[in-house]
Design a protein around this nucleic acid. Sequence first.
RNA 1: GGCGGCGUGGCCGAGUGGUUCAGGCAAGGGCCUGCAAAGCCCUGUACACCAGUUCGAUUCUGGUCGCCGCCUCCA
Length: 450
Amino acid sequence: MLTLFDTALGRPCPLEPRDAGRLGIYLCGPTVSGEPHLGHGRVTVTWDILRRYLAWSGLDVRFVSNVTDIEDKVIARAAEEHRPVEEVAARYEALWWQVMDELGVLRPDATPHATEFVGQMVAAVAELLDRGHAYEGGDGVYFSTSSVPGYGLLAHQDLATLRAGARVEASEEAAKRSPLDFVLWKLAKPGEPWWPSPWGRGRPGWHTECVVMSLGLLGEGFDLHLGGLDLAFPHHENERAQALALGRAFARHWAHNGLVVDERGEKMSKSVGNITSLPDLLRSYDPRALRLVVLGARYRSPMDVSPQALAHARGALENLDSFARETRDLPPAEPDPGTLAGFRQHMDDDFDTPGALAVIFGAVRAARADRARAPALAAAVRTCCQDALGLPLRGAEEALGKEVADLVARRDAARRRRDWAEADSIRARLVALGYVVEDTPAGTSLHRQH
RNA sequence: GGCGGCGUGGCCGAGUGGUUCAGGCAAGGGCCUGCAAAGCCCUGUACACCAGUUCGAUUCUGGUCGCCGCCUCCA
């Protein structure tokens, strides 16, 4: 069984399913108000790997991830573009899924949209008011953080110390009883989108949607809540506080991935201006390179996704693809049990992907050294990479255009008559076309340079 | 100020109280090759600093320095 570091406990904890053999997982998804960036890439790829691994291990995983399609930033973006909010949200969501597909991130089993759950959120806010955990301020309804015991669990701080460090937004100061309180229902200003509610026309606060949707789709006491470390507090803390205040059992386990940092080790964030957009990145790099960078570090560490890091990953990828080509024609075999066991041991140990990767590279080396064991080792490498980690290997022969195929044929003919000058000249042309040229007993073999 | 984390060989990145090693990328030498490419073999003697515990510490304890995150929107 997989052991994961639980943010709430502050230590690794076995991931025991609520229902035997099944696992309900919730991941905080994007606010669709702009291009996805590397931070999004890390979160989605990291937890896609975990999800695939768990499913590969035989668990029935239900993976839910939301889309925040109504929120201040979406409204601001729409205003900037002089476009309707729904149109802007739809466009960035479409871009989001396009990028996710490119990255090989599996679609969630459910993708609830905030706008589809407004009615349920209104009901939740009303119940929080009834139960005395919320109050009406001047511009909306607020949650009273001091009304729930144990607020600060995920931050590992109590209410008083959190409060002491809190910065106060002038605009909200008047309405909030405590700087830690947060808005549940935000009254609409003129021109803003709105939904009806007992407190007036408005929209739900961000922290409410994930509670309503996760509990609604996965049920009370669902297994695992995931997200970036920067969401642990206050977002996840506030989700948990609301669930507690509603008297519902919330996530049994919490896990958070480390943040993407720049070359200087500083967090990638819009305010610093050091973000890399994923569509930009994917124009220059194989999406598998990003996945390999993610696999190369533990999920909780800060991660450098510089061009240099991606270039290194590209080298490693080349090695694996080359192995896939070498072993393409081996007879089918059962995956080597030792490799699978070693791989699982690392994965189960708090999702140790670098260790798991080392096992895979070990198998690659062993297969190259031992022809007899090669089929089983290659099968293990293949299933670990492709099925468990979502890292497909390219072992297939490239489909070649006629022009290129002609060059290959001419080069093979030249080599047969030992016309090295001609063979080398054709090779130079193929290299110029972006191919890596390898001579094999069967003739010229081509594959694309990544 | 509070809380959390980090500092490993050219780079990335695991790990451990002690004879033999993570792994990847890059580099150098060799083998193979018509020449290459791919692959194989060999090579680096690293753990921020200072004390302490110990027969022995990179690994434990204390301190110093440096870096980062959260406490505000953020994946």
